[in-house]
Amino acid sequence: MSTPNRLTASVAALAVVAAACGGRARPAAMGAAPAADQPAESGPTVVPAGDTTGLLRVRFARGTTSGIVNDSLRDGETQGYLIGAEQGQVMMAHAITWPVRERESAPAAATVRVFSVPDGSELSAPFGAGALWSGRLPATGDVIVRVSATGATAYTLAVQIPRRLSVGAEHPTAAIRGSAPSRAPVDYIIDGESGRTLAASLRERDPATLHVYGLDDGTQLAPLSERRRLWAGRLPASQNYVISVVPAEEGAEYELSIALR
């Protein structure tokens, strides 16, 4: 599998989990699309952007690192969203399209593009245009995420901004206690060097599991499907690694321990 495809599959898995946990049942593959005219019972708050005509602002619920929006596009239409972030943060925005009607053929292909609000310039992504945009944000402030598609479609837009942890030679360990307000994953990110040993663990009693993967190449260290509470091993490449806590229930309390040596 190519690098972009591995990364797309990884983020798609997270987005599908988060969409399923936002108060809706996830539509089966090639099945009915999620309704686009009603807000999810939980997840991000979507409000009019005010001074930016036609755009909606996506807000992350307290204690989360992701926002989910279920929406739809007419043929030839583009939807835009405002997201606030800080300079240097890594953001991933992924649009998963669903068939508009049951038993319909494959859904339209989505494209996600990101623009700077102050000057309107487009922010580049390492893997080019596609359903996934991933990159480091150059400045503090708002960015615009625009979603388009090859035809009419419903879709789930998942936006992730992992919390960066400083672990390394001077501070090789970190312990984070948290409570997940929904079943959407809570994401953390670290810098990892090839050959170093990473250990990530949750307590045995925590109602959550881990998803650990390389941000740049999508390498799955602890795949979502394995539902692990512990992963330890040597890092295969120098890159950013995402460590996601995937809650099994709303309000799940967890304690994440990370060591990098």
Rank of each mutant, 00 (worst) to 15 (best):
V47L: 14
P99R: 05
M92F: 14
L56C: 05
D37C: 10
G54P: 10
A49C: 04
A61L: 10
D37I: 06
L55V: 01
P107K: 06
L55P: 00
G88D: 08
G80F: 09
Q89H: 13
L82K: 03
A106E: 15
I68R: 02
D51V: 10
R113E: 15
G43F: 08
R103W: 10
T52N: 10
W98C: 15
R62S: 14
T45E: 15
V69F: 04
R74M: 14
P48T: 03
R103D: 15
A49D: 11
P44T: 01
G76F: 06
T111D: 10
R74E: 14
V46I: 13
G50E: 04
M91S: 05
V100A: 14
T64I: 00
P44D: 03
W98P: 00
A85G: 12
G43I: 05
G50C: 01
A40Y: 00
G43R: 02
E102H: 07
A49Q: 02
Q89G: 02
S66D: 01
I96A: 09
F60E: 13
P99S: 07
G54C: 03
V112L: 06
D71N: 12
A35H: 07
L73H: 08
D37R: 09
Q87M: 09
P39W: 03
D37Y: 11
G54W: 07
G67R: 01
D51S: 15
A61D: 12
F60Q: 12
E102W: 06
G88I: 04
Q89R: 13
W98N: 15
T45G: 08
A93W: 03
I83Q: 07
T97C: 11
Q38A: 14
G67E: 08
V90A: 13
T64V: 00
G63W: 02
A61W: 00
G50Q: 06
P107D: 12
A95Q: 03
T78I: 03
A95L: 03
N70W: 13
R113F: 02
A61T: 13
E77M: 05
P48W: 00
T52C: 08
V69P: 02
I96Y: 13
R57C: 01
S42V: 03
G84S: 11
G88A: 09
E77R: 09
F60V: 10
T65R: 12
A108Q: 05
A93G: 03
M92G: 09
T52I: 12
E102P: 13
A40D: 12
G43W: 05
D51C: 05
A40R: 01
T53F: 14
E77K: 07
A85Y: 08
D75L: 10
N70F: 15
H94A: 00
L56T: 07
R103E: 14
R113I: 00
E104A: 15
T111Y: 02
G76S: 02
G88Y: 10
V47K: 09
R62L: 08
P107Q: 07
R59E: 15
P99Y: 04
R101C: 06
E102M: 12
S66A: 09
D75V: 05
D75R: 10
D71E: 12
P48V: 02
V112E: 05
G84I: 00
Q38G: 03
L56S: 13
T111G: 00
R103K: 11
G88E: 11
G76L: 01
I68A: 05
L55I: 00
V47E: 15
A36I: 04
Q38C: 06
V112S: 02
R57G: 02
